[in-house]
Write a protein that binds this DNA or RNA. Structure first.
Lengths: 337, 337
DNA sequence: CTGTTAGCGCTTTCAT
DNA sequence: ATGAAAGCGCTAACAG
């Protein structure tokens, strides 16, 4: 038995579909007794207005899309995203919106964007100019960029280059010369280039420090690493097993650093005694783990909130695209000496 | 300028809307040149078929709804959910679905369910019989229950009662008699009763152990606690500051236990020397924190996967409602002696 | 107070 | 190979 429609209710209640519609959306326009009767029938048949039809005519769904060019499995394994979503979710709570998480489907990010029944998007980790993002602009669908370059669209970023510079500089200042860098790998087929977005900016920061401290930058000491605990563990483990003997490690994200911690433990490497380690993000667990992670703090929850607010503003038609830059700062805990 | 529609494209390309539709969904039915022309115009205007209209006629959206009776802000702050979502997300990845996270809106869970443009739901922490869930059944919308009682709907649970019994028994066996229990608080206005779902089952397990060990069960030693780090910290802190001096604490979830860890640290209480602590869930950070959390392990990712698979099966019309019970087991690490 | 009617934007038989 | 027309389920002028 197919789902009951407005017509079914109308028939059973002996009224027109309009009346049923009013009973749900504008009861005051009907006599109380009619409303009651309609609602009774509806309740009886378990009828609820089809959200799709409703959204189609209303022109909006009340849903906010979040898209990240990684698999959902990877996304939710990374506390950075959970924390970012905490911020976004808070705004959804305030505005009674649902949050639709999307990841590239059938090889195409563009398709994912096209199929999503949402009012606007928060796009994480891609530049505004990305070719699969551009269609959104043409279609006039509001979106805000998080962790990506943007000229005209609203965006929220943290000061990656500056803060990774600080992290690398700290290590170099301590005299380290053999430092392994676990950078982001080209996150997916959607990116053509390692030197893209946050990944690029963070690497530049490290690089600038090396330059300023007159330390030779060796490409082989930079390992593109999958943004996951396993990725970090493997990347560090492989390097170590290949004979690399870094005295310090810079990880482009905390989840990667956590992987380093695990791989080091498995090999009996002492952190920070044998190897110093600095991550990035300051995810909530960073200060809970043992040893507590030295890292670059960025206000992740706030980042999500701002992105959410920017999108909500855009949805309301308040068009004052803002590119927000959040401060990030080095936090030394126990994985550095 | 409103978004371009199929008619706009048709007009500009000098064809009928039908042709445009075919160009997108069934190009083989059109001559290659026509397809090309249509697609060119479409691309030019940044046209993409409206997903809502499409879903309306197709009868499905390719989106999976996940609903939890807590604010999104709370949900995403709890690694249990991130981990559960990791499992669900993996299934979404496989089936090219999006994942819509919902939380009660405008005071009404029922409304949240009604407004969601999804093909089916995964409902976490509510019983099948909950009055706000029942409408779904009538409407014939597929859903699966996670962490809730279900008789006829598919469901995934872990063996809460058995495993919390084991946790409490362990403590009691060690001679503890002053044990503080941080149970779930009635999670929200949607639940009328503390003795509901997982919360109830976990409490029963603790209770049964007390009974079997002949230890008097004191209601005052059971504190309903918000399922968050802050909740755990506050609940333990308040109890302690009121003069309670437990020698052991049982927390209904790891995030609560993490809060205890923090509150204890702030007060200079040594764990496990002064107070032993056992959580529940075995979220990924449990073994990373310092001291590593003793807890009850349940396969969270798998729980999410199974829920996802059950829902996908239901969506396909494969109706073999299964109530799955996952094993959970005590894992002793460093917060117990 | 209630019903008629015309869409919302798209897909899909059924003709031509 | 292409188009006309009906309809997905609902809302909202506009009548009466």
């Amino acid at each position: 038995m197919p789902r009951a429609t407005i017509t079914d209710i109308a028939r059973q209640a002996g009224v027109s579909p309009t009346a049923v519609s009013f009973a749900f959306n504008n009861p005051s326009r009907l006599s109380p007794s009619t409303v009651e009767r309609i609602l009774a029938v509806a309740h009886n048949l378990g009828y609820t207005p089809n959200p799709l039809s409703r959204a189609l005519v209303a022109g909006h769904t009340g849903m906010l899309g979040v898209i990240v060019p990684q698999t959902m499995h990877t996304i939710f394994a990374n506390p950075f995203f959970a924390t970012l979503f905490q911020g976004i979710g808070g705004i959804c709570d305030q505005h009674n919106m649902g949050m639709l998480t999307l990841s590239p489907r059938e090889e195409s990010l563009e398709q994912a964007l096209a199929r999503a029944p949402v009012d606007g998007f928060i796009i994480v980790g891609l530049n505004e100019q990305h070719h699969e993002i551009l269609p959104l602009r043409k279609r006039g669908i509001p979106f805000v960029i998080v962790d990506g370059d943007a000229e005209t669209a609203p965006a929220v970023n943290s000061d990656d280059e500056q803060s990774t510079y600080a992290a690398a500089a700290h290590l170099l200042k301590q005299g380290h010369r053999e430092v392994l860098i676990l950078a982001f790998e080209t996150p997916s087929r959607h990116l053509d280039n390692v030197f893209y977005g946050v990944g690029a900016r963070r690497t530049w920061g490290y690089q600038r420090a090396f330059a300023e401290y007159g330390v030779h930058w060796r490409e082989t000491w930079l390992r593109p690493t999958h943004g996951s605990l396993e990725g970090g563990a493997q990347s560090f483990g492989v390097a170590w097993d290949e004979g690399y003997r870094p005295t310090a490690v810079l990880a482009a994200s905390d989840i990667i650093a956590l992987g380093v911690l695990r791989a080091a433990r498995q090999r009996g490497i002492q952190i920070p005694a044998d190897v110093e380690l600095i991550g990035y993000d300051d995810i909530p667990v960073a200060e809970l783990v043992c040893p507590a992670l030295s890292t670059v703090h960025q206000p992740i929850v706030q980042k999500g909130q701002l992105a959410g607010e920017l999108l909500v503003a855009a949805l309301k038609g308040e068009i004052h695209p803002e590119q927000i830059m959040l401060e990030a700062r080095l936090v030394l805990r126990e994985t550095t000496r």
